[in-house]
Design a protein around this nucleic acid. Structure first.
Lengths: 248, 248
DNA sequence: ATAGTCCGATTGTCCGATAATATCACCCTG
DNA sequence: CAGGGTGATATTATCGGACAATCGGACTAT
């Protein structure tokens, strides 16, 4: 076994076509919003059959760089939507048997500094949005209440004006939402504690008090941990392969 | 405008097929490692043409839940590979004009607590892996040195045994790598400072000293910031649509 | 055992065709 | 001239069928 050979690599045409198109999209030759040529035209240009082009298009469609507006025929170059990307990440994490503890730990790490950053970079419109969400605070319906709790974090994320942070916590919010609903359903004090924390965090962000925003967010997340215990949720359990919102 | 109608939704067959298959995969009816039936069989079962099935397969293939082992014909159900998922996230962030500052801020938030967690949960094999990487420390070649620097963070991430954290920082490492290479190329002191920080962090992780691990990681990341300035990299510049590794 | 050979199954790719519908230039009417 | 109908055309979704390449085995000869 003196000589070693690398496996000969073969790439099917549909993948090559997809790669070529993706290349043009990432290097902005094809800008977002631009319309893609018709399939037959692409087939002619690439010198392949239309079926092959279509397979490539499906690939790009599912990554979110191609989309078609409702009721339109031609494909449009687009930027992947945040929630669509997050769906993929969530699915991947769920399939990898990530535990509730893992997700919670991620939030513990991510949210306090995010709130801090929000306190520094928030603008009036951000405050308005957070306020609107906080105002919906204690909701009788557990489903809605859980959604509101997640929405609050999203709003805070928006206020950072850092897309990296916004995208990073999105899958965590998605994965935690079923447990969150359970907590709100089972733990009597949950609603008011959440509402209180949200008010304090909002207050701190409005005042531009980064330290305070961080502190209350830490409390807020720690409360979730208490909630898991009180609701009898096993932290070691893997997150549910929950229902994904279909990308619009 | 008394009555309102939601836009009638039409889903093409290839999407329905993809959704149906994905459903079976997320609910584990089709377990990872299992082989998918042949395309003709699927076409028969779904009552559609083979071309339609193929378009659905391309969609699932690109999300990473389907794969074929090298040189095999039948598709295999699989879990999305971390780096493949991260590629998608990176691309999305790049297309959204994320700035270097945004990415750096993400690392600032993510890495110190990650090192902390690593100090708590590391096992002997983790230490060995980190040590091996640190041992490759000052490399003359900037390209390799940058890869090594990123690899170090990956190793630390592995040591947390939390897949959420591992996946979360992966896109950041990918997006930062071009800038990192520039720094190593331009800033004379970069190599030794990186090597020093890595040694100290490794030491702390080995000792199980979470606080120390966090501290040195903070320094390490702050150093990057200094590096950007010294290398004349504009933090407001958007990250490069760098070259993506093709998923194997 | 290892290499050669054959065979069925399966994928990659192509061709051609049809129905549905989005797009657009055009015309008509008030 | 604005705005609404109206075809002709372009384009997609889906189908059926075809063929070459090749993978997985079985079987055979060395």
């Amino acid at each position: 076994m003196s000589v070693q050979f690398a496996p000969v690599e073969f790439e099917p045409a549909y993948r090559k076509v997809a790669a070529a198109l993706l290349e043009r999209i990432t290097d902005r030759t094809l800008a977002a919003g631009e319309r893609l040529p018709p399939e037959l035209e692409l087939a002619r240009q690439f010198g392949v059959n239309r079926s092959t082009v279509r397979e490539a298009l499906r690939e790009l469609e599912s990554t979110g760089v191609l989309r078609r507006q409702r009721g339109s025929k031609l494909m449009m170059v687009s930027r992947p939507e945040r929630h669509a990307v997050a769906d993929g990440v969530s699915r991947a994490l769920a399939l990898h048997d990530v535990s509730i503890r893992d997700v919670w730990e991620g939030l513990t790490i991510l949210e306090p500094p995010t709130a801090e950053a929000a306190a520094r970079h928030r603008r009036p419109t951000d405050l308005a949005r957070i306020e609107a969400t906080v105002a919906r605070a204690p909701d009788r319906n557990a489903e809605r209440a859980a959604r509101q709790a997640a929405e609050f974090f999203r709003d805070v994320g928006e206020a950072t004006h850092n897309r990296v942070l916004m995208l990073a916590h999105e899958p965590l919010l998605q994965l935690l939402s079923p447990s969150l609903r359970t907590i709100i359903d089972e733990v009597a004090a949950a609603r008011t504690r959440i509402a209180t924390a949200q008010r304090r965090i909002l207050q701190a962000i409005r005042a531009g008090d980064a330290a305070e925003a961080r502190l209350w967010t830490e409390k807020h997340i720690r409360d979730f941990r208490r909630g898991f215990d009180l609701a009898g949720i096993d932290l070691a359990r893997r997150v549910d392969p929950w229902s994904i919102d279909r990308p619009g």
